[in-house]
Simulated assay, not measured.
Amino acid sequence: MAASFWLESPLTNDNGAVGLGTFARRSTVSLSGGFGEIRLGRDYTPTFWNDTLFDPFSNIGVGGNLIGSVNTRLAVATARATGDPLNGGLPGGPDNYVRTANAIGYFLPAGLNGLYGQVQYALHENVKRDEEVGSPSRRGAEAGLRLGYAAGALDVAGTFVQSTVGDAWLPGGVHGTRKVRSASLGASYDFGGAKLFGEVSRVVDEARSAFAVHGFQVPTSITGTYQGALLGITVPLGAGQIRAAYSRVKFENDARPFAPLGTAAGEASAAKLALGYSHSLSRRTTLYATVARIRIRDGQNNPAVIGVGVGPAGTGTFATSGGFSPRSATGYDFGVRHVF
């Protein structure tokens, strides 16, 4: 058996404001052996693994797929809605999309004829609660799994994750909750001369609450659904590699019996086309360049999530002071990557 630890810190390379001062990225201890691996701490979620491993751009940079961008923006939006960002409020990290804290995880061992997978459960920060106003919240709890099969050129995996991003007892004995459920299926196949990637995703953001009518509490439910799809390819070219991907996410809102004032309603969608090239100068040093074009339809119906652009992490907004996102935007990145 082996006992292991992993402490990973974020770095802001442009201004040095953050560096080796926290371990707000992955921070885990684990025990592994023939039985697999038990991992405790702050770790990546099953959803993020699929969004990253089945993306030619690894879900980063301006070429990062829209499924990951929208999921990140949704996590940030739900954190802001509650006024209490989880996970330290880090960009791209709150509310259990990229990483989750307090996690108990189990990974299947190798040697299962290509079968792999993980189960993850994250605890909230509070003690046992009572059914009364002001009692401790279960916000931050998360449960998920990922199951896949990899053999030869084929790799395919499916995920399901549920995260509690809102939880409170309201006046009148109403239990208000907000849960985000995500499911995805991703696959890749390496033909040798080219590698194809694909993913489909469905994310449901459901908020249950109540409103007062003549002294009575009337239950209400607001559900936002995000349907995503990705198709990508990488092609080796000598010491380089061409990468391309097209991704799209469609948003639909279903409010029952009606949407509270200020709630985005209707439909919106965004589509992104990305093209990139990387060139290896050595085993550890690579030059890269990417260009991406995003187009938004009816972004005003959900400016906090669908109104996304191609920022440094693929998640920047281009919203104006009126809250309306432009119909299109173009982003570029280029640089050198060195692995130590």
Rank of each mutant, 00 (worst) to 15 (best):
G89N: 05
A122I: 00
R248F: 07
L281R: 12
Y149T: 03
T220V: 02
V18M: 03
F107H: 14
V308I: 14
S247N: 05
G193Q: 12
P85F: 08
S30Y: 05
A151P: 00
V161A: 10
E37M: 12
L147S: 05
P56K: 05
G307A: 04
D298H: 13
A153R: 05
L273N: 02
H175P: 00
S209H: 07
Y97K: 00
D14L: 13
T330P: 02
G83S: 04
S201M: 10
V165H: 03
S163M: 05
G63C: 08
F211L: 01
N302R: 02
G323N: 05
S135K: 03
P303H: 03
K195Q: 15
F54C: 02
V291F: 06
Q300L: 11
T317K: 01
A24R: 03
T164H: 01
A274R: 04
L273C: 01
G262L: 12
Y149W: 00
A264R: 13
A304P: 00
Q120T: 10
V308W: 12
A210W: 11
P85N: 03
V203W: 04
N102S: 08
G88H: 02
L185N: 01
L145R: 08
T28G: 13
A207G: 11
T285F: 11
S328Y: 04
A2H: 06
A245G: 04
V305F: 13
A3L: 13
G276Q: 04
S188W: 01
A274G: 07
G311V: 12
E199L: 10
A79W: 08
E142A: 10
L145F: 08
F334K: 10
D43F: 03
A270L: 14
A244I: 07
Q227T: 14
R178Y: 11
A313Q: 15
A264T: 15
E267T: 15
W169K: 00
V249H: 01
Y97A: 01
T290M: 03
W169P: 00
G176L: 12
S135A: 15
A81E: 05
Q300P: 09
L275H: 07
A264M: 13
L145W: 08
A268V: 08
G111I: 12
H124M: 09
R293N: 12
T72D: 03
T177H: 02
R284F: 01
G335W: 07
G19W: 13
L170H: 13
V291H: 09
A271E: 06
T78F: 09
A319D: 08
R295A: 15
S282M: 03
R256G: 01
P171E: 04
G64P: 03
N50M: 05
E37A: 14
G224D: 14
G83W: 09
I296A: 05
P312T: 14
S30T: 04
D95I: 11
T317I: 08
G276F: 04
V200F: 03
G68R: 09
R42D: 06
A150F: 00
A207L: 14
P326I: 06
T28M: 15
P10D: 15
